[in-house]
Simulated scan of single mutants.
Amino acid sequence: MNLEVPQRPFSIRIFVPNGDPDGLRLVEKSNWSGIGVVFNRTNYKQAVTRPEFERTGVYVLVGNSSNGALPTIYIGEGDPVGARLNSHYSRKDFWDWAVFFVTKDNSLNKAHVQRMEVRLLELAKAAKQSKLDNLNMPSPPTLSEADVADVDSFLLDMLSIFPLVGLSVFEKTETRSNSLETLSIEAKGVTAMGYEDTKGFVVREGSEAVKAETATIHQYMSNLRGDLLEQGVLNDTGDRYRFAQDHVFSSPSTAAGVILGRSANGRTEWKSKDGRTLKELQTQESASIDDED
């Protein structure tokens, strides 16, 4: 089943029980039985005393590798989650923060969260926006048709919350509309196409990137190119790289840098069909908005 987060208005409530906005946070969504718990590793000993840790749920550990640009994540489930997180606190070094989801009414059971774990692993692998620390792919549990529907509905609400807590690794980038302004880069013998999106800057499948990097390329950019090759987002076609799927970048400059193998100003590198730069397009759009006001 393909899970697609519906585009509809919703509200969330973030409660900070300790008064520290960088510490433990409880996230609730309107008309939802679930609750998300976000915490840093540094305050784990204080966070673990919360009653939510004693419930059945699914969790994601998040960290950054020293030689990569994409986040490293580990997805798991626990009955209760606290027992599993205690183990990871002492044995897994990579993670800096974590988020887990349980229900307010303890309605989730072991099979429910096992399905969520499998689905999140599948989504993360397809999205290729992170490095997975999981070594094995668990088998999905046997559930009734009704339970599958309930669990997947719960999971959709989770997926809408993940980006709000800083974790955008589960949604595969796909072209949303042919009416979007398409921009291109044509340089160094490669051609790339992309567009601005609410999630960032999307480079389209089939776009090309140079293989050679300049000596002055930023280490982050070089690491990101390496990560995308490792994930299979970029394929080596011999004299250049090619995007195997649409991929969203945090900014047009990051996208341009990966394509050109050097530091780049995306606002001047990306151009429309009539030769206008992204900067010129944004300036024109800004002037148009001012005129309407």
Rank of each mutant, 00 (worst) to 15 (best):
G57W: 02
S66P: 14
K104D: 03
E117I: 00
I185N: 11
T72K: 04
F94N: 04
A264K: 02
N136K: 09
V148L: 14
S130M: 01
G76F: 08
V210K: 04
S184F: 05
D293G: 05
M137V: 06
V210Y: 05
E171M: 10
P138V: 06
E196S: 14
Y44I: 11
N31F: 12
K104P: 08
M116A: 00
G76Y: 03
P163H: 01
S153Y: 03
T72E: 12
W95L: 08
G36L: 00
M1C: 10
S160P: 00
T254P: 00
L123N: 00
S87L: 12
P9T: 05
A146N: 15
K45A: 06
V5G: 01
A111G: 12
S30H: 12
W32H: 10
R13D: 03
E205W: 10
F10S: 04
A98D: 03
R240K: 10
S168N: 01
N109P: 13
D147M: 15
G68H: 06
K45H: 12
D93Q: 07
W95R: 09
Q282V: 07
S66G: 15
S153K: 03
T283C: 07
G23Q: 14
I75L: 09
R262V: 06
H112Y: 05
T182G: 04
R276S: 05
L234S: 08
R119M: 09
K188T: 09
E117W: 00
Q245I: 14
R8K: 14
N178M: 14
S130C: 02
T216K: 13
V62Y: 02
T268M: 07
Y74R: 06
